[in-house]
Amino acid sequence: MLTFLGKRALAAVPVLLGVVLLVFLILRLIPGDPAQILLFGTKATPERVAELHQQLGLDRPVVVQFLSFLGDLLHGDLGYSYSSHGPVIDEIAERLPYTVNLAVGALLVALLVGVPTGILGGLKPGSVVDKAATAFSVLGLAVPYFWLAQLLILLFAVHLGVLPALGVGGTAALVLPSLSLGLGFAAIITRMLRAALIDVYSSPYILVARAKGLSSGRVLVSHAMRNAASSVTTILGLQIGNLLAGAVATEVIFGRPGLGNYLVQQIGLKDVPTIQGIVLFIAVAYIVINILVDAAHGVLDPRVRKAWAS
């Protein structure tokens, strides 16, 4: 298991280097001079602009800029924000909890809704319950989360007035964002779990388990679910990127002061170090989560562990 984690972490290094290079290049290629934006509203004389360029190191050749950025990165230094002048790492740390709360909330919604409906559908395919579960998952997949967010705001915040639409006022404020981001993933889990269970239940080992006299509950919990879960985790791992992207947009819609919202603001300001920092952070998070998901897959399925060993 440890060698597996080590191998995967090592394999992630080139990927991260690629991400660093890409982010760096894109930010230099898109139009707009950070100095001009920083000086917006003041008298931006050519001297002031040149001075700022020098301060920010933007007067150096691009290759030198890249190498110095990379060098700082190796020391864990993400640089200083152009707009707030604080260390980018602090800016990230300050906003991260709001994003993590949202992602965890959405994941909880996805699991609490998706797992039971997936089980109901998978246990009795073709039944009324299954049809309802399928209808839910089709709807959940078809409705974009940003539109769902607006519907939820209209219903619960505007009409019923029971939940806050905006801001960060504790758990209540987390409900609507989590629902709008999580329900789509719930739909994916429902579909995957249903398909996985139908497949698992057609296996001889389920018949053999029943032939041992186990109750249907025991068969589900101790024989079927572990097999189904291992295929669902794989799919879930592939969806982590979408979850992160969705979190960015959801934060903007609900005005949550998380990383995603901050990223969008700083893109407008062309705050290069901050944008680089946040994107890199998200990339690292994505890679780490994926490694963890793969590890979970190995914990669930001994055949996967065997494949690692070889």
Partner: peptide
């Protein structure tokens, strides 16, 4: 029926490669 299965009546099924749960 359940108390009979596995206790009074045992089953050996046709496909041994798939008759055991792969994750247990």
């Amino acid at each position: 029926l359940r108390p009979l299965r596995g206790k009074d009546i045992g089953l050996v099924y046709q496909d041994p490669m798939a008759a055991l749960n792969p994750v247990k």
